[in-house]
Amino acid sequence: MSQRMKVSSNPHIRSKATTNGIMLAVVVALMPATGFGIYNFGMRALAVILVTVASTVLTEFLFGLYKRKTTVSDLSAVVTGLLLALNLPVTIPLWMAALGGVFAILVVKMLFGGLGQNFMNPALAARCFLLISFPTAMTAFACDAYTGATPLAALKAGEQVNVLNMITGHTGGTIGETSVIALVAGACFLLAMGVIDLRIPGSYIVTFLLFTGIFGGRGFDPAYLSAQLAGGGLMLGAFFMATDYVTRPITVRGQYVFGIFLGLMTGIFRIFGPGAEGVSYAIILGNLLVPLIERVTKPTAFGYERGGKRA
């Protein structure tokens, strides 16, 4: 008996994972999409990315000076800046990109207590802040090769879109959202590293597909559904933003609920809303519901009945 019982104090589960390592993995996973964005939109995309990342890191650094506790080295500011840049159109004035970075770090993250305390994905909150503040600059998707509406807007208007171009990424949109191939490659890397799992992205995408199939008005037409999947920020959002450790539910059942909620909201925003896009608003709305979701999906501890009573 005594050999089978090992007495030790907690923690009982140890892991080599560090914040730093996870953030680095996310940055690496975003590299294909970043590279493709620069290739697709030219050097101006690189400038937008650099400015945004610099502004997030600098804001984090300056706030760290003020609080006398530096947190720049955990790389989370880099991830936030990179994600925000990938969510911006290439033509955005650089000072707006910088302002978005400051808003993401200062208002959404640091004022609520820093990494782990933010109630909302900082990059997405900053994107929505910019979208409300500068609607014209944030939706000007014109660049050399492709002018006019994004494929999603064209789709909503009832036009035909080239699905193949949408999957490779040769189309209009924000810097990082266009290429499905590059995004999925990055997501596979994260899945292989064990940084994310398929619970949220899987339930998100499946729910979204079912919803658009039923309410989209074109039935389960494969061309329409794949265009909806490949268009806009769905892939970027599902794999890189909805899975953010801080702003997703920690309970397993809660993560499925979260994914289903995001799928429903994205479908509602895209089909019934005034705009063609809906991923960012769906995710930040979902972020706000996370505490409630966690409360109702709290697993029952061993030795307890459902509802917290001792068995």
Binding site: P93, L99, I132, S133, F134
Partner: peptide
């Protein structure tokens, strides 16, 4: 200067 329109709307008041 491009006006930051969010400050003219309800969220801006809270900020």
């Amino acid at each position: 200067f491009e006006p930051i329109r969010i400050f003219g709307q309800a969220p801006g008041a809270f900020f």
